[in-house]
């Protein structure tokens, strides 16, 4: 995304009738969104049994991402705050049901009923305060909390996001972890400014065999160094967890939990099969407040 629409206007204003139509008739956008959605579905790692699942598409817009869910044989419910985008979705006769709603107000769904969720290019919008009553932290909390509740245990949620900066990514990730999700970020093509794409891959509750984190594309399992320039940009994926936060942020937090707690948490993560850095003398050194 060369410009950042979320900085221009609130989503329901930015995606008006004109913009919604423009967005949905651009063959370039259609191609990009369906590629992103396809990858998100892959990262959902649903059981390969041919059974259609009930999925959510959060920030479904005009249905480009939902169409990928349909093509993969699934039923879906889409939520979006822009009526103009939803009107185009219904004009295009998408097969999912669509709801006008604000994810920042929490999802109005029963507990434990949804088999998985995707959200393509939408969650970064939550990081802005578009009204005086908006507090991004609280809106993220309401959103992730309600998402956690409505997902079935072991279900996944995959978010393709365009965080504006490290602090924003951290804010999103921390809100998700607070809600109880396990998981981390998958970065495809980290060395290419153009094709670099981030996916937040979250699992609800204890991971089971069928929901263990999928191997990321082109990941060698050894190095996660962003500095390491690779010739083969097209095949690179880097995964990192919420541990890699900007240092400055880490210092401001005062409520320390101690090294012991950190080590225990890390052990729990390892037991769940989640990649965490090895324990060293630096573990929990100054950033006591988070694991």
């Amino acid at each position: 995304m060369s410009s950042r629409p979320e900085l221009l206007a609130p989503p329901e204003i930015f995606y008006d009738d004109v913009e919604a139509r423009k967005y949905t008739s651009s063959s370039r956008i259609i191609e990009i969104q369906s590629k992103l959605s396809e990858r998100a579905v892959e990262l959902l790692a649903l059981p390969d049994d041919g059974v259609p699942r009930l999925l959510l598409d959060i920030g479904c817009g005009s249905g480009l991402s939902g169409e990928t869910l349909t093509e993969n044989g699934h039923q879906w419910i889409g939520l979006d705050i822009s009526l103009s985008m939803l009107n185009i979705a219904s004009e295009r006769e998408v097969e999912g049901d669509i709801l006008l709603g604000d994810m920042g107000q929490g999802l109005a769904l029963r507990p434990g009923v949804i088999d998985g969720a995707i959200s393509i290019s939408a969650v970064q919008w939550l990081c802005n305060a578009d009204k005086s009553s908006h507090e991004p932290k609280l809106r993220l909390k309401a959103f992730f909390g309600s998402l956690y509740r409505c997902l079935a245990r072991g279900a996944r949620a995959v978010f393709q996001v365009y965080p504006e900066n490290l602090a924003q990514r951290e804010l999103i990730l921390r809100s998700a972890m607070h809600a109880g999700f396990a998981g981390g970020v998958v970065v495809d093509y980290p060395h290419s400014a153009k094709s670099r794409k981030e996916y937040l891959v979250l699992t609800c509750g204890p991971p089971s065999l069928t929901t263990a984190t999928p191997k990321a594309k082109g990941e060698d399992g050894e190095s996660c160094s962003e500095d390491e320039v690779s010739e083969d940009e097209e095949n690179q994926t880097v995964r990192f967890s919420d541990r890699q936060r900007p240092r400055k942020k880490q210092k401001v937090n005062k409520k320390g939990k101690g090294r012991e707690w950190v080590l225990r948490k890390k052990e729990q993560m390892r037991n769940k099969g989640i990649n965490v850095p090895p324990n060293t003398k630096y573990t929990a050194r100054k950033r006591k407040a988070r694991f």
Binding site: L79, L86, N87, L99, L100, G101, Q105
Partner: peptide
């Protein structure tokens, strides 16, 4: 309306 529930609070 037009099949779309308005769930905005």
């Amino acid at each position: 309306n037009k099949g779309i529930p308005n769930m905005l609070l």
